[in-house]
Amino acid sequence: MKILVAVKRVVDYAVKVRVKPDKSGVETSNVKMSMNPFCEIALEEALRIRESGAADEVVAVTVGPAQCADTLRTALAMGADRAVHVDAGAAPVLPLSVSKILRALVQVEQPGLLILGKQAIDDDCNQTGQMVAGLLKWPQGTFASKVVLDKAKQVATVEREVDGGLETLCLDLPAVITTDLRLNQPRYATLPNIMKAKSKVIKKFTPEELNVEIKSDLEVVQVTEPPKRKAGVIVSSVDELVDKLKNEARVL
């Protein structure tokens, strides 16, 4: 079985983002970019499934401009067997179009499992996995915190983090899984593997070659700073705190 993993290049999670003065977006030039942390977890899960013998190939895929090839090199260095880069140019691509591109790639690659991060930490959309599952009419296990694959029965048992607890689903393969933080701890790429990754193949497509029309039915009007909370007062004792909460804030 083959596993397809979608990865996204985003502003590194440790960077404090700054809104551009012209309100067109956040500053991304001269800012460290990395693989979206949820995508690292998705890739790690795929690699572990391959290492357990339940899959034999892991293919990493990304959609975005030329620089996204770096993210695929990282995926290859972590252990993906090969990679696919759909170069959609510099303009941002909405999750709906990304889903259509992924559907087209699924038709090319015929994987048994498509794993994605539950959301990207830039636009925080949390949509792509659900949307591609809908387009493919595949079952979906979103926000997974545990995945157990039964190769003989061709099913995946997925534990999901939902409001108020953990839900368990059983999905027939092929299926889509999106990853939550607690699924695993992603590995680091070692130097020898980074060297090896340089000779692995990245196949390129354009959306046109996959017969996908990029649709933009949602426009960004402006991006602004959130209102700042001003720091309050430091109280000196529990008595003063209880008094303030009772008589000033009136929340007790």
Binding site: V19, D123, L218, Q222, E225
Partner: peptide
């Protein structure tokens, strides 16, 4: 809607069907 974990607010216009 908030983006970047609420570190920025994004105003969007839906222009689709």
């Amino acid at each position: 809607r908030p983006i970047y974990a609420g570190n920025a607010l994004c105003t969007v216009r839906y222009v689709g069907k």
